[in-house]
Design a protein around this nucleic acid. Structure first.
Lengths: 227, 227
DNA sequence: GTAGGGATTTGAACGCGTTAAAATCTTCCA
DNA sequence: TGGAAGATTTTAACGCGTTCAAATCCCTAC
């Protein structure tokens, strides 16, 4: 209420915009609080008043980013288990790859920092829930074995997806490698629990991805320069 | 040659011992270079001369640690694909869980820092090679489908294992949860590519782990204490 | 035994994230 | 319009990782 709050919100927005630009330009480590204060025309202590610290600066971004991912995946309500599982991954990819320089920093910070634990936990759980729903629907449709506990498998699928993201953020694989690794991993975890037509689809997908990963260039194996 | 090298090696050893103790006591962030210098009776710049920085301090440890893991897994030369794959994970676990406080810090640093990229790459590749060998043997024995590209699947299995380690290091799961997640993930990725008896074994193992994870206590969902 | 050269130490400094105190400005109410 | 309450700014400082230059020590070689 009133101009106090309004101006505070304006300052917050100004800081976030500047932070996003500076991080994209210099990386998270390259961003200094003093520079950020100057760029967003506030003082350094104000940064701490409004956000609480350098890492906390990004928590708002993180929450909205992951919320967008989760929301995006809810589109994928049609198709087989495989289609939907892969669509969930793709929905995540799209948002990340849109601003790679920034996303890389965000991901590494998000997945490794202890201060982001709560947001991470919440995001992971909604992501896993999403995937678990897909598995449950698959069970109803007879595509997925009945004995599988959806949420547990979903968590492990998301775990794999997380590490693929980390590999990408660390620069160990490029975008194509990230997509391939994700698809392959999802398929590998689905292959054993699917049946009939769905299983055949997974096999096909896996073999296709596999041939891409072997025949194409191999950034993972080439970079062993000794150490 | 001579006493120069000897004394240098002695200083290095002294520093590493002190670092291990201090990290186990205070955590990686709690360790200050000034304190470490005092504890190991050298000067601060010497730390930088001998190692190059705070993170580099641990690279030697990391290399030997992972070398030990890889060496330990080479014991597991008998049994089915499943037995050997799980034995590889257990061998890794044993070393990590022996000194949890220290390992946690080491893992987080190792798996997230960009300065450890080269060691990480090399370790990951030897680990994946090890698992790939198991898969190849399984293919010869008819336990694993022939169309599977062992190294590619092995890399994804190791990727999953890495994230399970991260989850443990972040304190999101306890030791039992880590073991369960690892076993479940390995099995999930093996289930689809195994056949006959081996596949039945994987199914059995998965169902067993799964029942542990659902019926027992669930540290993953309970630990949301907020803040 | 003694000079010389190399590494270590000393002492200081830099930039960083972070925080505290008083000074200043903006906003709201009478 | 004037004053009170609040947040922001100023200014300074702390501890941290890191690095520099000169002084010092230890080892090697004559």
């Amino acid at each position: 209420m009133g101009l106090f709050e309004e101006h505070k919100a304006e300052r917050r927005a100004r800081i976030l915009v500047a932070a996003r630009e500076l991080i994209a330009e210099l990386g998270y480590d390259g961003l200094t609080m003093r520079d950020l204060a100057k760029a967003s025309r506030v003082s350094v202590p104000t940064l701490y008043n409004l956000f609480g610290g350098k890492q906390a600066l990004l928590l708002g971004e993180l929450e909205s980013t992951f919320a967008a991912v989760v929301a995006g995946t809810e589109q994928a309500r049609t198709g087989s288990v495989v289609d939907r599982a892969l669509a969930i991954c793709e929905a995540g990819n799209a948002d990340l790859l849109a601003a790679p320089r920034y996303s890389r920093e965000l991901i590494l910070l998000f997945l490794t920092s202890s201060e982001t634990a709560e947001v991470r936990r919440a995001s992971a759980e909604s992501y896993a829930e999403l995937m678990a729903d897909v598995l449950r629907d698959g069970q109803k449709a007879g595509e997925v074995q009945a004995w599988v506990e959806p949420l547990i498998l979903a968590r492990r699928m998301f775990a794999h997806y997380q590490l693929a993201m980390i590999e990408w953020a660390r620069g160990e694989v490029d975008t194509d490698g990230f997509r391939a690794a994700t698809r392959f991993g999802m398929c590998a975890m689905l292959l054993g629990v699917t049946r009939g037509k769905a299983q055949r689809q997974v096999t096909q997908e896996m073999q296709a991805v596999q041939s891409t990963m072997t025949s194409g260039r191999r950034p993972k194996t080439r970079a062993r320069k000794g150490g």
